[in-house]
Design a protein around this nucleic acid. Structure first.
Lengths: 200, 200
DNA sequence: CTACGGCCATGACAGATGTCATGGCCTCGC
DNA sequence: GCGAGGCCATGACATCTGTCATGGCCGTAG
C-alpha cells in the first residue's frame, strides 16, 4: 500500500484528487494539507511514501517544502503545477523532487506517476522536459531578476531601490539593461514576460 | 438521470471532476470541453440538463459562453471559478447563470449543486454572496476602467491613447483620476488592484 | 597578470508620466 | 432651464523613467 500525502491550497482539486486516489486499490491517502508549511509538519510526523505537492501554494510553496523535506524525511516527492515553465521545472529539480507533472495532464495519470515514483523511479513529464531542454536560459543576471521581482507589483524605482538597498540610479541601470536584452519598452512588460517564462 | 457537460481548460481538474461525477448514480457526464466556444457548440448539439463552466478559460470564457447559451439553449448553467470576487459573481449573474461556486469548495459539493440547479433551484455560494453584498462597487467610471484595461499589460500612455482613439493628455487625465481615487502611485498598481477586485 | 563580466554608482539628458487648471460637449435628474 | 457629472481635450509644470557614458570594485577564466 502506497501511503500518500496531498498538498494543494485549492480545495476542489485537492479533494477531487484525494477521492480519486482513494479509489485505487494500492494507494492510501493518509493526509491532505493546504500549504507548504503544514505539509512539511505533517510529512515529518507521518513519513508518507509519496508527497504530491502543488507548486503554487501561499507562503511556503511546494518547491520550498520539497527542498526542506528532502533533507529531513525519507519520502519521495511529486510536484504538480499549473505553470509548467522550464524555470519551474529547473527549480523543482534543484529542490530534489522525484516526479514533475503539469496540471494539463489527466487526473487519471496521477496514480500512475505516484506508483512510478514510489517504485524508486523518476518521472518528468515529457512535454515539459522537451520545452526545458529547447528553451534557453534567462539572459538576465541574478541582480536584474531581483530588480524585476522587486518591481513586479508596479512599484516605483525609488521603492525598488529602497527594498534592495541600492541607489535609484543603479536600479535604473539594471532596468535599462533588462529592457535592452528583452527588446521591451517598460519595466512592467519585462515583469510580465519574466513571469510568463518562469524566470521570477 | 442528469445529463451534464463540463468545460474547463485545465485537464487535471476537468477529468477529475468528470470521473467523480460519473460515480454518482443520478449524474451522467455526456461531454467535456476545453473552452467556451467548444462548450457552446457542443451544448447546442447535445442540450445537456446542466453545464458546469469554469469561468477562466482562454478565448471565450465561461461567463461569455453562459451569456450566449442562455439565449439559445434550454440548459441550466453552473459557473465555477478560482477567483470568486464580487465582480466575477455579478458578471456571472448578469449572464444568467443558475449556480455559482468557487473552487475553494470541496469537489464533493459539486454533485449536490448540480442536483439543486437541475431541480430548478438556484445556488450561490454563501461566502461569495456575502462578500458581494458587503463590497462596494468600483469607484471608477467606465472610461477609467477602459484605460486601466488598455494599460494592464504594461503598455505606454501613447499605446493606450492609440488603442482607445484618445489623445495622450486625456489618457493621462483618466490615469491621474484613477490614482487619486485609489490612493495609488502608478498605473500598474491600479491595474493590479482592479484585477484583484474583479473590476476588469 | 590581464581581460572580461557582474555589480554598484554618478551625472547628464530626453522623453514619458502624473498633476493641475481650464474649457467645451453631452446627458440625466430636478 | 440649470446644475452635476461623465467625457474629451489642451497647455504648463514637476517628477519619474530610461539611456548613455564613465568609472570603481571584485571574482574568475585564460
Amino acid at each position: 500500500m502506497i501511503r500518500v500525502l496531498i498538498a494543494d491550497d485549492e480545495d476542489m482539486i485537492r479533494t477531487a484528487l484525494a477521492a480519486l486516489l482513494r479509489l485505487e486499490p494500492d494507494i492510501d491517502v493518509i493526509a491532505e494539507c493546504r500549504d507548504g508549511a503544514e505539509a512539511v509538519e505533517v510529512a515529518t510526523r507521518l513519513t508518507p511514501d509519496v508527497c504530491l505537492f502543488d507548486v503554487e501554494m501561499p507562503g511556503m510553496d511546494g518547491v520550498d517544502a520539497a527542498a526542506v523535506l528532502r533533507r529531513t524525511v525519507a519520502t519521495r516527492i511529486v510536484a504538480v503545477t499549473r505553470h509548467a515553465r522550464p524555470g519551474v521545472l529547473r527549480r523543482a529539480l534543484a529542490a530534489g523532487v522525484h516526479g514533475f507533472m503539469p496540471k494539463s495532464r489527466r487526473a487519471q495519470d496521477v496514480a500512475e506517476v505516484i506508483r512510478q515514483v514510489a517504485g524508486g523511479r523518476r518521472y518528468i513529464d515529457p512535454e515539459v522536459a522537451a520545452d526545458a531542454l529547447a528553451d534557453e536560459r534567462s539572459p538576465l543576471t541574478d541582480r536584474e531578476l531581483d530588480v524585476l521581482r522587486a518591481g513586479a507589483g508596479g512599484e516605483t524605482i525609488a521603492q525598488i531601490a529602497s527594498t534592495l538597498h541600492l541607489s535609484p540610479g543603479t536600479v535604473r541601470n539594471h532596468v535599462s539593461s533588462i529592457l535592452g536584452k528583452l527588446h521591451l519598452r517598460t519595466r512592467q512588460q519585462a515583469a510580465i514576460e519574466a513571469r510568463e517564462r518562469g524566470w521570477i
